[in-house]
């Protein structure tokens, strides 16, 4: 938004688990005009911290400011700007029962996923893969007339 030479980056923010900590982070992005492409948050097991993964974009200068401004928030413990990471995103897709179950199953398998639920009127598939591949999966799934697609947002871990 602020800079034209935008580059996609993934940041992990480790925060103290306290009320309104997520609001502080999203308000920071909104207030200073930074983009959020996706955001996920979950508690870190056996700790009083949470792990927030934010996919964002901006120039190197903007990224530096985002990192520093996040650091400035009192409940923010650590900010990791990922360089070498494993990045995954999950997607759930709902297809009409009229579509071929085996075709959808094969498509999901190609993207490390599978069919997770089959009901009277629909098939639900789940795929977890790199964000770019999720995009491809969604494109490929169009021919099976998905009625609903829900993406989960990126999670990442440093290699």
């Amino acid at each position: 938004m602020k800079n034209s030479s935008n580059e996609r980056r993934v940041i992990s923010v480790i925060v103290l688990n306290e009320s309104s900590v997520l609001a502080r982070i999203t308000a920071l992005f909104a207030g200073r005009g930074y983009n959020i492409e996706s955001l996920t948050v979950a508690p870190i097991p056996e700790s009083d911290m949470s792990h927030i993964t934010i996919a964002t974009n901006g120039s190197a200068k903007v990224m530096e400011q985002i990192t520093k401004q996040l650091h400035k928030l009192i409940p923010v413990y650590k900010v990791i700007e990922h360089e070498e990471m494993v990045e995954k995103e999950m997607v759930l897709a709902k297809f009409p029962i009229a579509e071929h179950l085996s075709d959808i199953g094969a498509l999901c398998a190609a993207y490390n996923g599978g069919i997770v639920n089959v009901g009277r009127e629909m098939i639900i598939a789940m795929v977890a893969d790199e964000p770019q591949r999720i995009k491809h999966f969604i494109e490929a799934s169009q021919r099976y007339n998905p009625s609903e697609i829900v993406r989960g947002g990126v999670v990442a871990i440093e290699r």
Binding site: E64, H71, K72
Partner: peptide, 8 residues
């Protein structure tokens, strides 16, 4: 003292 001021 505020790192975010530097390079802003």
């Amino acid at each position: 003292i505020d790192a975010s001021n530097i390079g802003k």
